[in-house]
Computed example of a mutant assay.
Amino acid sequence: MKSLVAVGACYVDTILTVDHYPSEDEKLRASSISRRRGGNVPNLIEVLQQLLESTEMEQMSLKIVAVLPATLSAGTKQVKESFTSGVDLRHCICREAFREPASSYIIRSQSSGSRTVVNYNDLPEMTAEEFFQIAKTTLECIRYLRQQFTTVKISVEVEKPSRPGLQELAAEADVVVYSKSWAQGNGYQSLEECLRAQAVIAHKASLLLCTWGKDGAAALIPSSSIYVFSPAYIAENLQVIDTIGAGDTFMAGMLYGLICHGDDWSLLQKLQFANKIAGIKVVQEGFPGLGASLQTCSSSLKGHSIC
């Protein structure tokens, strides 16, 4: 059985939908409020599990390693109850002295379609020693995995421009995914410019990816300089409803392609599939039912094409 271990923060998201983004000191009434479990890693795992189930692929062990508040806290309970029994959370680390989970407060503007995110996380970070005991994507942990498990494949998401150390992590990974915000924050003006420049730095990577929102995504194989671009998938006559987690959904689709169709899908097909599932996600609220939305494409998927 194949196994995927995802390491990252689990958040509880509070989403306020407003007509427009408020100016400073403005009072504004929200049209709706919703709360759900968030975080890049949990979102990715939720979507990947649906894809595996909906396309009847071989069983895969899905594990999450994250820092949570106290075992009996409401936040930890909410995170654990948000997953089905197919996701293993036994290796999560609970900080018993803390009651509040990592949280995101998201203001979603209906007029512009934008979202503004304020994060709060008072939980102490996972240490390298804690990670070693359960076998945090820090540089030390990646090197540990390389030493202990010679066949392991490591992917790293380079997302936040202001977060230090991401470039060093990328230099040690097999697959690196760069966000538009990180690329632009580091002076790159296009997908291709970012990937070709990073190929020199991420010298151990076999695959580099960059997402550019509604302008699509691209991939580069450094060893051969093969560059592939795929436009974003836009469903006809459907309105964008919720872009929160679209990048996580893209990553789930790409991992699905790499793990389950590594040999029988081309790089372009993997990229198209990831864009498709991300495009389906943004026209619905949250993540439920994404796998079911692909069932109508099951015959073409078995034929290794993207419908």
Rank of each mutant, 00 (worst) to 15 (best):
M1W: 00
M1K: 13
A6M: 13
A6R: 01
A9P: 01
Y11W: 09
V12Y: 10
D19T: 13
H20P: 00
Y21S: 10
E24G: 08
L28H: 04
S34E: 14
R35W: 02
G39N: 10
V41F: 04
V41K: 01
P42L: 06
P42H: 07
P42V: 06
L44F: 07
V47P: 03
Q50V: 01
L51W: 03
E53T: 08
E56S: 15
E56I: 01
M57H: 14
M57V: 13
S61H: 15
I64P: 02
V65I: 15
L68Y: 03
L68S: 01
A70L: 09
T76E: 02
Q78W: 06
S85P: 01
G86L: 05
V87T: 07
I93W: 02
E100G: 05
P101I: 11
Y105K: 07
Q110A: 14
V118F: 14
Y120S: 12
D122Q: 13
L123W: 01
E125N: 10
M126I: 11
A128D: 15
A128R: 00
F131Q: 02
F131D: 10
F131G: 08
Q133V: 09
I134V: 15
I134K: 12
I134P: 07
T137N: 11
L139N: 07
E140A: 14
R143Q: 15
Y144N: 12
Y144V: 00
Q147T: 14
T151H: 13
K153H: 13
I154L: 13
I154N: 09
V156Y: 02
K160M: 12
G165A: 07
L166S: 03
Q167C: 07
Q167D: 11
L169C: 02
A173H: 06
A173G: 03
V176Y: 05
Y178A: 01
K180C: 09
S181Y: 00
W182Q: 07
A183V: 03
Y188S: 08
Y188P: 00
Q189A: 14
Q189D: 03
Q189W: 00
E192W: 02
E192G: 03
E193F: 01
C194G: 04
Q198A: 05
Q198D: 05
V200L: 10
V200Y: 05
I201N: 06
L207R: 08
C210W: 06
K214W: 06
D215K: 14
A218K: 01
A219L: 13
P222D: 08
S225F: 03
I226M: 08
V228A: 03
P231N: 02
P231S: 04
P231K: 06
Y233I: 08
A235Q: 15
D242R: 08
T243I: 11
D248L: 03
F250H: 05
A252D: 06
G253M: 12
Y256K: 04
G257D: 11
L258T: 07
I259M: 15
I259Q: 10
I259K: 02
C260K: 15
D264S: 13
W265T: 08
F273I: 11
F273H: 11
A274V: 08
Q284E: 14
Q284Y: 10
F287H: 12
G289M: 09
L294P: 07
C297V: 10
S299H: 14
H304M: 14
